[in-house]
Design a protein around this nucleic acid. Structure first.
Length: 153
RNA sequence: UAAGUAUGUCGCCUUAUCGCUGUUCAGUUUUGAAUGGAGGAAAGUCCGAACACCAAAGUGCAAUCAUAGUGGUUAACAGCCAUCCACCGAAAGGUGAGGAAAAGUGCAACAGAAAGAAUGUACAGGUUAAGCUGUAGUGAAAUCAGGUAAACUCUAUGUGGUGCAAUGUCAUGUAUACCAGCGUUUGAGUGUGCACGCGCAAUGCUGGAGGGUAGGCAGCUAAAGUUUAUUAGUAAUAAUGAACGCAGAUAAAUGAUAAGGAGUAAUGGUUUUCCAUUAUUACAGAAUUCGGCUUAUAGACAUACUUAAUAA
């Protein structure tokens, strides 16, 4: 990474993406903004095990629950997203926050993850009670993933 | 023009970058291209159906529950349309569990002597005698009975249950009531009193069968379809023609960001127009599918009508 612009929040989003493409996408196989079906945590058993045995990291208003877990299809990280029905009664609000979390995750994961880490099942929870803007969500996600990588490696 | 009434429509737009998801094609490791991708309420789950399963679920009666002027409409309905009546409103209009009180039971404020079995007061009439007769007075209603059925009841009509997490199907792994093949053990049991052998049995492996968990597939989107024209009808609606082919996710796609534009509100400047700044752009997210109802909704628009004012 020649310029670590992802952490400079005043810098416009648009230029950040341009910068990522120009500088990073060739060199870092994790520098992909995709977050497709195969990267989503779907297995019921894995999720149950994750919640009963997993550890967690918090960066308010986000919490990451993680557990070492090897997947059959060889994907290194599988991530799920969850928003409490208690705090957000309407489906529209829940969907909106989930989408923001997913968006922030797919944009930031490349900066933090690398091949040195083991394989993990992840679940990101939103523990806040209020709605949130994308920029602050982005900051929180950065913080959260940083803390996770630091703790694990 | 203002205030209203009714019905209906729309409910932010454009471009760029990065993504998500269905289908098709190409490649098959990772992908690439093309092309679809939320609503008027998708919501509440309150009615009515389609579809599926349950076989003591069929038929009749009863009970329960629902509906209730009249006529029409529909696959069906408690919906919708028309209309009568009652009530509300100055009007356009709105609201209405609006069938039955000589089948029976119950209930009734105030007033009044009395609202059911008692007849009081005053006056008049009247008789052998007698509230026996009339009037006054209270009240919506008084020896005549009436009101009330969002009181019981009666009448007419309908009414089995569970819901797509229904249901069907494929099936890795695991365990083994079962079946077959091959092997092992005679330490115990048995056919058989003893020995050997064989069978049963015990046990191991393999295969089959059954079962159905994780998961996959079907159900799943061509449908009482959408748009539109004509005809019939006051209308709901129906018939015919033309065009279209219009979401299918499953820890659950339909998004994020930037720039520009649009609407609305407030403030300021100009003062109809116009410009600038700031704020704001609702309610809300498909989950088997339809027809309704109910509730939420910033703002914008159209049509018809009512009342008032002004002008001609």
């Amino acid at each position: 990474m020649s310029f670590n612009l992802a952490h400079n929040n005043s810098f416009p989003y648009f230029y950040r993406i341009l910068n990522e493409i120009l500088n990073n996408s060739y060199f870092n196989p994790f520098m992909s903004f995709k977050y497709s079906k195969s990267e989503k945590l779907k297995s019921k058993k894995a999720i149950e095990r994750l919640f009963s045995e997993g550890k967690s990291v918090t960066a308010y208003p986000l919490r990451l629950v993680y557990l070492e877990h090897t997947f059959d299809d060889g994907i290194q990280f599988k991530t799920g997203v969850s928003v409490s029905k208690r705090h957000f009664k309407n489906a529209v609000d829940r969907n909106r926050i989930k989408r923001l979390i997913r968006e922030a995750y797919r944009l930031n994961k490349g900066d933090h993850f690398n091949n040195n880490l083991a394989s993990y099942a992840l679940m990101i929870l939103y523990i806040g009670k209020d709605e949130i803007e994308f920029t602050s969500m982005n900051n929180s996600m950065n913080e959260l993933l940083g803390a996770f990588v630091k703790k694990v490696s």
